[in-house]
Design a protein around this nucleic acid. Structure first.
Lengths: 208, 208
DNA sequence: CCTAAATTTAGGCTCGACCTAAAAATGTGT
DNA sequence: ACACATTTTTAGGTCGAGCCTAAATTTAGG
């Protein structure tokens, strides 16, 4: 069934392409590197690159599915008695301790690569948006809201906005060259402040 | 100075291109129409189209500057004693009465054209984001916040999220075929609800 | 009417995205 | 171990958006 060799080689090829791409992007910038160059560096055909990564942006921002599903998962898995807001704040603070890439931690080179490229910033916004959509669906399902009811979408938009603001803050500090330790310390306070803004509005919203 | 004839012809050319493009887009969908076809329909060279509208999306979503500056302008122009939240809500409700395109009113064909095209939806998100950025700058300047302070950005993100949620709601209803009158009635209530979510958090924020 | 400035045009170029058929590599049954 | 089926990779081509340049056309203003 789960044929070992074929699957292994696919992983290796994918990894080779991804590594070559990341190295080139950080060296010379996302827009300046062509897919042909990446294929040459990874020693595969151009079509193979496109095959594994349909869009060029996927080469720089991989694991988009995990990213997009994050907020929804946190809310879906929250324990009884916890509100959506509390769950997201708890999970965000845990991510800060872990220096988790999913909330914005990366290297200075990576952060620069993204903010230097309009294409990548747009793609990142896109991912934030998918994340918000997924969250909205979980909230709508969880609160058994009526079809035309905007509450779940509005709440998802606000929670997503808070999350995105903190994400961008982490990326800003990373770009400035701060260490992950420093950033974690700063952002812990920021998180309390930003989520605190929604405290009064959403404390009791979607409590399981 | 403001040479009449030359300027007039430019306006006419621009209008001819824009009209031809809009007609073709709504007929056959944004992605299915090529720039070459638009140029042929408007009886100009392909390069002239690109000249007036650098990106293909600009042909469908014109006046992006006005759009992007909207929220910031509303806040900057608010009367003494009014908070940012109150100003944005007031202006939004006025827009609802006007069936203003800037808050999402359009025709069914236009709404479909956008939601059928990933490129246009992405571009619209981009515009919402620029709008939020501009708002953040005004809020930061107006509240004289410290350089590292996230408050203005967070508030702009929340207010922008509220606005965007309502915008998308209007587009959804338009796509469903509801009349602007019906939509206005529904959305007036929605606006009170959505802005109301931020009431407790931001009532006193950025009051002039 | 003539010259300077602005605009439009034609043509070519690169790159990302997509398609197809053939070749190569891997898995499977005998 | 071999032959056959399946999956993956490859080569080659097409298309459209975006960009550039030099030449042609149009308008402004003396």
């Amino acid at each position: 069934m789960t044929t070992g060799l074929r699957e292994l080689k696919k992983q290796q090829t994918r990894q080779a392409i991804s590594s070559a791409a990341t190295r080139l992007f950080i060296e010379r910038g996302f827009e300046a590197v062509t897919i042909t160059e990446i294929a040459a560096a990874a020693q595969v055909a151009k079509m193979t690159v496109t095959n594994y990564f349909p869009r060029k942006e996927d080469l720089a921002l991989d694991h988009h599915e995990t990213f997009a599903a994050g907020l929804a998962r946190t809310v879906a898995d929250r324990p009884a008695g916890e509100s959506a807001l509390a769950a997201l704040r708890r999970e965000f603070l845990a991510g800060v301790e872990r220096h988790d890439a999913v909330i914005g931690f990366s290297s200075q080179g990576f952060a620069r690569m993204i903010s230097d490229s309009p294409t990548l910033t747009a793609r990142l916004r896109d991912l934030h948006d998918q994340r918000e959509d997924a969250l909205a669906h979980v909230l709508a399902a969880d609160t058994a809201s009526a079809p035309g009811d905007l509450t779940a979408r509005a709440a998802a938009a606000l929670l997503g906005a808070a999350h995105r603001t903190l994400f961008e803050h982490i990326m800003d500090l990373t770009r400035e060259g701060q260490s992950n330790r420093q950033i974690a310390s700063t952002v812990t306070r920021s998180a309390h402040q930003v989520f605190g803004l929604l405290e009064t509005s959403l404390t009791d919203y979607a409590t399981r």
